[in-house]
Design a protein around this nucleic acid. Structure first.
Length: 270
DNA sequence: CCGACAACCTGACGGC
DNA sequence: TGCCGTCAGGTTGTCG
């Protein structure tokens, strides 16, 4: 579930427990997730103090006073647990703090990742070099979308999922933003009108901020890291609502694009 | 550049 | 109870 709002919520939850704390234990419990976990991760982080937390696109950042930043990605099924009663087979990294808290990165499907980067070189990390502007940074405007979509015949839905165009959007919030902007997800990106792109540029941060306000909602198995229920509290306009009525009275449709479900209202979105 | 598809991996759910 | 097919928030790569 982890799209931008869920990562943002996760980072906020981690900040409460980690900021300013010294890491007294750092225990990777397997060698790899989606890719290898750095072998020296435990050694480099043990004893370090956490100086700050942040987020870039769907990546969470844990910065330390040793010049290293732990970069995590939650993939499809990752979440952080704070003070879990017991560790299970999907708890892949455990952190212990000097004030007695224990955190675990739990990721059943292991599509997530863990990397340890030098903080001063983080901008040159290849995944970050390729990634597009932050949708909450105020720079994603109709004008920018017009430029990035120019000449592109791919469906606008698919280009919005491309992290190089805009960072942090995933399947849920792309569907929701397109609904709010009343854009047909199948439409060629380069043929969406400037007026619609202005509406889209406004809808993207609106949808994301609503989700953050709702506690990083999403789907079934997402919970905020402090254990508060973060899922199913938010209802979507179209996502996962196939066959249900849209506000206009028509039924929400589900189609496949790029092998993934798109939910939309063919009456409202044109 | 594009669309289609597969791969990575586990778990939940529905149908039988 | 179990077996089987389908689906799920993401990313990366190949093929034609």
């Amino acid at each position: 579930m982890p799209e931008l709002p869920e990562v943002e919520t996760t980072v906020s939850g981690l900040r409460k427990v980690l900021e300013g704390r010294r890491l007294t234990g750092v225990m990777p419990r397997r060698a790899d997730l989606r890719r290898a976990i750095p072998e020296d991760l435990g050694q480099r982080l043990t004893g370090a103090r956490v100086t700050g937390l942040g987020r870039r696109a769907k990546y969470g950042l844990i910065e330390t006073d040793r010049g290293d930043t732990l970069v995590f990605h939650l993939g499809m099924s990752g979440r952080w647990r704070i003070d879990p009663a017991e560790l299970g087979k999907h708890d892949h990294l455990v952190l212990e703090t000097d004030d007695g808290h224990r955190l675990s990165l739990n990721d059943p499907r292991r599509f997530g990742s863990l990397d340890l980067l030098r903080t001063d070189a983080i901008a040159e990390w290849p995944p970050f070099v390729a990634i597009g502007p932050e949708p909450l940074g105020g720079t994603v405007t109709g004008k920018l979308l017009k430029e990035r979509f120019a000449g592109r015949s791919a469906a606008v839905k698919l280009l919005l999922l491309d992290q190089r165009i805009v960072a942090g959007l995933g399947n849920i919030y792309v569907c929701e933003a397109l609904f709010r902007a009343q854009i047909d997800p199948r439409k060629a990106a380069g043929k969406v009108s400037r007026k619609k792109l202005d509406a889209l540029a406004a809808a993207i941060p609106a949808v994301l901020l609503d989700a953050i306000a709702a506690g990083g909602s999403s789907l079934r198995d997402f919970a905020a890291p402090d254990g508060e229920l973060g899922y199913f509290l938010k209802s979507f306009d179209v996502y996962a609502r196939e066959g249900e009525p849209c506000g206009c009275g028509d039924k929400v449709k589900r189609i496949l694009q790029g092998g993934r479900s798109t939910f939309y209202c063919s009456a409202c979105q044109r």
